[in-house]
Amino acid sequence: MGLIESGRMPKPLTHLLNYSRKYSLWMFQWGLACCAIEMGAALASPRYDMMRLGVIPFPASPRQADLVVVSGTVTDKMAPAIRRLYEQMPDPKYVISMGSCANCGGPYWDSYSVTKGIDQVIPVDIYVPGCPPRPEALMEAIVMLQERIQNEGIGNDQLAKRWRGEPITVA
């Protein structure tokens, strides 16, 4: 929509748009390692059911996803695939980096084959620390992301930037 991209959305509409966006995130999980099991427990287990927050997993392809949760160790061999799948996602898109391996390399900080954090490859919105983070921690990350989505475009130009696919700088 031309209105959103040029930043001329009126506030009540922005509010409504963000409200509906944050509760309908379609999450593409990039489950690589141990954190993928915790992410699976958060999604598929009836105990920490994440679908009640509006986050539905398993889109058919990254081209239909809003949110990607990179969970697990990223190796140098895998990093190009992550970059490619990130670029396949349409704007606006969000990235959650789950676990210390995806944040900064984690316990393998000195390995010869591990990428020390996926923020070297793709821009990250929320970092979830832990090894592995509990499913509740991932849910808190989703809630924080939802707060962030709610505040986009209200008092700042982040909504327009997200729609255009430009990087968001955090002051």
Binding site: D76, K77, G105, W109, D110, S111, Y112, S113, K116
Partner: peptide, 25 residues
């Protein structure tokens, strides 16, 4: 295991772990 353009043989003792060389533990 390693990507096609990897140079060196990691498990030899003279292959340094660069992260430890750059900033020691």
């Amino acid at each position: 295991y390693l990507p096609a353009d990897f140079e060196g043989h990691p498990l030899r003792k003279d292959f340094p772990l660069l992260a430890r060389v750059v900033k020691p533990w």
